[in-house]
């Protein structure tokens, strides 16, 4: 929190940590949804104070949320006079790591708030004094706790990271099978294939051969799975990774699977060029 939550303001502020207003509360917990290339934040402001709500309706105060990301220096201020249905969209490209959301009710022009819940410490001591406090433009009259979420999508992680290769004694010489009903894709292989794979990973040409054989076929299989049921994207991590990669590389799902796989894997056949 950049505004010190322990700080005593020279005016009453509705905060969870202070009793400047007795029995009043303000909360604005955002809901985050990660979409293909953007984050959707929905903020519902829950403000109990009727007098302050009336100030917002009159345009003298506003709900205000600050969304910021220290890593990317992203900083946006959103104002609203609506308590509900506040949707904010931010491109993922603008964010990395922790993203903070801080919400307030902010005074837009000089005004007086009358509320029996204002802590007497802020009021004139005389017995007949009204429970009124004057606020200036720029004052904060309500402040919620800070919320944060984390964006760390590795846009360039190789597709091979979604595979696990396992030996299956049930498989005969040369056989292999793909299982995609878990977050990572498991390629079960006969023992002799595992030995071949281990020897190929030891040198550059070998790795390229692997990518162009078993992994290329497996990626094609996964694309066919997504083509058959796009709902799978919400079920498994591998499907989300493939889908995100397709979005980033402008792949059209209507194209043939071999063509999409080739693009997704950075045209792997060309890796064999100039290899010894």
């Amino acid at each position: 929190m950049r505004l010190d939550p322990q700080k005593a303001y020279p005016y009453p502020v509705i905060r969870a940590t202070h009793d400047d207003f007795h029995g009043e509360s303000f909360s604005a917990e955002p809901q985050f949804i990660l979409e293909e290339a953007r984050v959707k934040l929905t903020i519902d402001y829950e403000l109990s104070s009727k007098p302050i709500q009336r100030e917002i309706e009159a345009g003298k105060a506003t709900y205000l949320s600050v969304v910021s990301c220290r890593n990317t220096f992203f900083h946006q201020v959103y104002r609203s006079d609506k308590a509900k249905e506040n949707d904010i969209f931010i491109d993922i490209d603008q964010l990395k790591g922790a993203v903070k959301v801080e919400s307030f009710v902010y005074i837009l022009e000089k005004t007086s708030i009358e509320s029996i819940n204002i802590n007497k410490e802020f009021l004139n001591n005389s017995a007949n004094a009204k429970s009124i406090f004057d606020y200036s433009k720029g004052n904060i009259i309500a402040q919620d706790n800070e919320y944060s979420f984390y964006i760390d999508i590795d846009l360039f992680k190789p597709l091979s990271s979604i595979f696990i290769l396992e030996v299956s004694e049930d498989l005969s010489h040369g056989e292999w099978e793909v299982f995609s009903d878990t977050d990572k894709v498991v390629i079960k292989v006969a023992r002799n294939i595992k030995k071949i794979e281990e020897s190929l990973t030891n040198y550059k040409l070998g790795k390229s051969i692997l990518i162009n054989s078993i992994y290329f076929a497996a990626v094609m299989h996964l694309i066919n799975q997504i083509k058959g049921d796009e709902g799978i994207i919400d079920q498994y991590l591998w499907a989300r990774v493939v889908d995100l990669r397709m979005t980033l590389k402008d792949c059209n799902i209507e194209h043939d699977s071999y063509s999409i796989a080739s693009k997704l894997m950075d045209y792997p056949f060309s890796r064999l060029e100039n290899e010894e």
Binding site: R2, L3, K7, L64, S68, H75, Y106, G138, I140
Partner: peptide, 14 residues
């Protein structure tokens, strides 16, 4: 100043 005031909400002129 930022510890007391919402610098985020200031316009460039402010």
């Amino acid at each position: 100043l930022g510890g007391h005031n919402l610098l985020d909400a200031l316009t460039i002129e402010e």
